[in-house]
């Protein structure tokens, strides 16, 4: 199948900004410029995701997983390399990102869907589905600042999936929902897969990766350490994680 997401030789270098330097005074007065420290977050990455794949990205904190997801989601521009994305993308990189606390759930749906590139008319067609999926019917006209983390996640996920994207990017947010809603999310993700849509998600929940992913990559220090069959990749990843730690998490 043809790739819907393709990264060729992607490198991302961050300038570590020292906060003292960001004032105008400092910029004018510092005659000898301290060269900014560089952080190499992603090194020469090549990755191609075919249509219909559910790709999980696992790895330790600080390995560059989220940076990779943000590059795919076009939040960060890569320092070098090319990214091609074919199709409309829904992103869910954080709980309640882009919700305005003073506006109601309904008003925020219109806003958030517009951020994902939908027209107001398209949102109007889908708003009932979104509200139904989120199970927030009785709260939808109250300001979002009164919502709990679980409610924010439900609304965010409902918008992300019910707006019918071709590609879905998720960064470790499903853990907040209760068991029943998580179940519903995974069902929806399964439907997504059968409909031939593409999912890329970052997770620390290895059971979720096993349940959903058709392919997994293990990301370590800005590079792909292993790529392929989910079970095999997770097994080799687990050899680097202290065993007692994982057992504790599993209990």
């Amino acid at each position: 199948m043809k790739p819907v997401i393709e990264l060729i030789d992607i490198t991302k270098v961050f300038d570590l900004v020292h906060h003292k330097q960001t004032t105008l005074k400092a910029a004018i007065l510092s005659f000898k410029r301290i060269p900014p420290q560089k952080l190499l977050a992603i090194k020469d990455l090549n990755l191609s995701v075919p249509q219909g794949e559910a790709l999980a990205i696992v790895g330790k904190n600080g390995s560059g997983k989220s940076t990779l997801l943000r590059i795919i989601g076009r939040v960060y521009k890569p320092t070098s390399g090319t990214l091609t994305v074919d199709g409309r993308m829904s992103t869910m990189l954080d709980l309640g990102a882009g919700f305005h606390p003073d506006l109601t759930g309904r008003e925020n749906i219109f806003f958030n869907a517009a951020v994902m590139g939908l027209s107001t008319a398209q949102v109007r067609d889908k708003i009932d589905q979104i509200i139904d999926f989120s199970e927030l019917n009785s709260f939808i006209d109250t300001p979002v600042r009164t919502y709990s983390a679980g409610m924010l996640m439900r609304l965010g996920f409902a918008i992300a999936v019910e707006t019918d994207p071709d590609i879905l990017l998720i960064d470790e947010v499903l853990a907040v929902g209760d068991a029943a809603f998580q179940e519903k999310c995974y069902d929806r993700i399964d439907e997504f897969k059968t409909a031939g849509k593409t999912i890329v998600f970052v997770t620390h929940d290895l059971d979720a990766a096993r349940a959903v992913a058709t392919r997994t990559i293990w990301f370590d220090k800005g590079e792909i350490r292993a790529d392929g069959n989910t079970q095999e990749v997770i097994d080799s990843y687990l050899t680097t994680v202290p065993a007692h730690h994982y057992q504790e998490k599993n209990q």
Binding site: G73, V75, T91, L93, D94, G96, A97, G98, V115, G117
Partner: peptide, 11 residues
């Protein structure tokens, strides 16, 4: 003011 949005979504 739109820090959250800029850090999380493309537009």
């Amino acid at each position: 003011m739109h820090r959250d949005l800029i850090r999380k979504v493309y537009f």
